[in-house]
Amino acid sequence: MLKIDDHIPGARIIGLDRAEKRNAIGVELTLALEQILLETRFREDIRILVFHGIGGHFSAGMDMKDFFDSSTRSPELIQKARKATEHWRCHLLRKMPQFIVTAVEGYCLGGALPILQCSDVVIASKNAQFGLPEINFGFVPGGQIVKAVELMATKRALSYMALSGRLIDANQANSWGLVTRVVDEEPMTPALELVNKYLELKSPVLTQ
């Protein structure tokens, strides 16, 4: 569910690894995210985190098959997964002492947006698409997701995305505050360049 890469000393690269589902956040993936953040939070040797998606998309959001009406998972497991989800996106991510860089390509929808909001830098490829598509299914975007978007984007952006269900492109996301920088190439290259620059900084305490 997650591909963890620690090959750069001082950095941890967390890849969402569920390409066949466009990295939709299902039960196993959300439990793995909570676990890796718990394990990373007090690691003083890790100074920077990088989130990215494997397979051409960052994440299509929460997995409908696992969490919503048609779920075939046991109620106990769903409850455990929901609790884990609220833990990492409402609390854990916000308390991480590490600098966070997120590289986005392809879809970045719904439940994936709190990761962006907790990131210090978001680098998106030109093909990245962002949105709150819940209303297209007759759902409502979760309050936690709405709150996260409101903290990083304009109120107008939030209303448009939530009510229309339309996706926006990387340049619009940049203009509305969801993204720091839009790049032509795949976004991991500039993200890793940023990691190296960050690790060269003399005083990690000052950057936290």
Binding site: G138, G143, Q144, E150
Partner: peptide
């Protein structure tokens, strides 16, 4: 869904 989305936008912030 539109009504409930507007409620969410109005309150959760």
């Amino acid at each position: 869904a539109v009504k409930f989305t507007k409620d969410t936008l109005a309150h959760v912030g």
